[in-house]
Design a binder for these strands. Sequence first.
DNA 1: CTGAAAGCGCTAACAG
DNA 2: CTGTTAGCGCTTTCAG
Lengths: 341, 341
Amino acid sequence: MATMKEIARLAGVSQATVSRVINGAENVHPEIRERVMRWVRELDYQPNANARSLKQRRSNLLGVVLPGISNPFFPDVVHAVLRESYRHGRSVLLFESGGNAYHEWRCIQRLYAHRVEGMLLVPVDPEAPHLKRLKSMEIPAVVLTQEIDGFPSVSIDHREGGRLVARHFLDLGHVDVAFLGARRDPKLAGFRAALLDAGIPFGDERVIECRAWHEEATYEAYLRTKEFFQQAGRPPVSALFAYNDLAAIGALRAFEELGLSVPDDVSLAGFDNTSLSAVARPALTTVAQPTQEIGRIATDLLLEWIESGEADESPVTLVPRLVVRESTTGAMVRAAGEASR
Amino acid sequence: MATMKEIARLAGVSQATVSRVINGAENVHPEIRERVMRWVRELDYQPNANARSLKQRRSNLLGVVLPGISNPFFPDVVHAVLRESYRHGRSVLLFESGGNAYHEWRCIQRLYAHRVEGMLLVPVDPEAPHLKRLKSMEIPAVVLTQEIDGFPSVSIDHREGGRLVARHFLDLGHVDVAFLGARRDPKLAGFRAALLDAGIPFGDERVIECRAWHEEATYEAYLRTKEFFQQAGRPPVSALFAYNDLAAIGALRAFEELGLSVPDDVSLAGFDNTSLSAVARPALTTVAQPTQEIGRIATDLLLEWIESGEADESPVTLVPRLVVRESTTGAMVRAAGEASR
DNA sequence: CTGAAAGCGCTAACAG
DNA sequence: CTGTTAGCGCTTTCAG
């Protein structure tokens, strides 16, 4: 591995001069510059970023921590992050927390060890105590896909997303609806609120609990959904809202096995508008997040913070968009209405 | 940001002692160790990995370069890579080449600048001249999903994958088949070979050219497929083999628009067995790659190389597996046969 | 315009 | 068992 010293020796100049050439300083004689550059090219020399980082107190490193890259929602945001980071001369370290708060903290520590200039975080638990510790590290960190006090964030309005689905169900004539996901999911809050506004009570017996960020989200959703619908004395359900597309796919399988047709027997909506939803059978009605925007904006925010030294903590809230496809209909409710008339 | 010097001062010992404690050296008095550790915990101190890297000539960094994380094939391999790297105390830098050879080289250079201990590469072009340069960098690099001379690699046997599809088509009674993808794709070679073995000629007029690794693989496949099937005087085609699931999805859309039913009018097979293929309508017949295995084995290989200092260049070849779902059938061919009788 | 020298935070001999 | 010291490869005053 070539070092600057070596280049200096070869070119017959001092290390300082090589440094100047490498860093494009103006005050170097053209001839010398050329002589140095020749050796740089000859040896494919690249300055050691670690040494540089040490001296300049600036690592050109950014860190990303997310539950798991396998959820098809994340590749798109990572793609945008990578793109934007690269454009600004930063390299990115990627970590998976596996949806585990303690492990998330370990990842953060690792990033800190590398002295990343900033990090992008998709936190497992907004209440996790390590977030305070992160704060005290004084390293720029922006939160993705949710709002957390004390951090800048970029996310969509999840409550509004839930509301969108509720209103869609309502418009279709559904009254007996259910939610598949976590009890404290803001999507559920919005969903429930819109229902209540329409005079439709929505009790906890209508949420099918299912752990978010779970590695095998699809499978768990499949299981929980199947259990729920087989359960004696369960409330009637003509439309189900799943907390994400992965879970919706699981529910889809469950319905298939239960002999329930989507959307003829039960309507189904997902969330995220991942590639899966367009391709599923039937194509899933879902709520789109501007995935790449999220990644891009978050990265830009982070970079600005790094460069300016001060955070803009006002959360960026993007708007969700309902994408209606084939998995939701009101036909079944209307038919029932006519039959009972 | 705390430094070792600071901890040393606070604990009233020398920096060397702190270093010993941090690195778990045996020969430190328990009391002193505890005193130091107290401060380490107090300040959430983490040794600066860059400084360490400089001194130890070992960065604990691994690099990954792939065309784009958005192809659903990659998240799973990255997941495995991340997992395995973390287990071995390494952090990973992720780069996207965007399927561009020059950009790939830039990414490699960046990784080199960070003095990664090794890299995992999904090369854009096996012939790209920069691979030689990479070689001369003398930094361990293993290639994923293809074999390249001079590098260890882990991939499936793509020719065999192509053969599998050809034989499946043949078994179903198809004779008029086509390939959607790049002319020099080894899958095509295997596909063609199996066809030829069965006495079925397969000329270039039956390959629908479509750029691999393209950002918008699905869309391009859609376009090319549509063009091809609308073309006057095109050869008859009752079964199409797409180079990956993304492309197959594109073809699916094209067939939909053309009013051709899959599989009743034309059978369709993809490649990779991504989550998309199971969820598509109709569910795609495809060839499965052991995605996580690829990531895990490649990482292990790389780590061994790093640790031992010598490469095992014999390529690891994993076996592809045909996954038959709903998008392929022989019914249509049989019907035609009966009709002509 | 160029070189000498100090030092970023850490590890690793080497003394003691 | 502990401290002193010399760099790792680079940038950056400060002289010249």
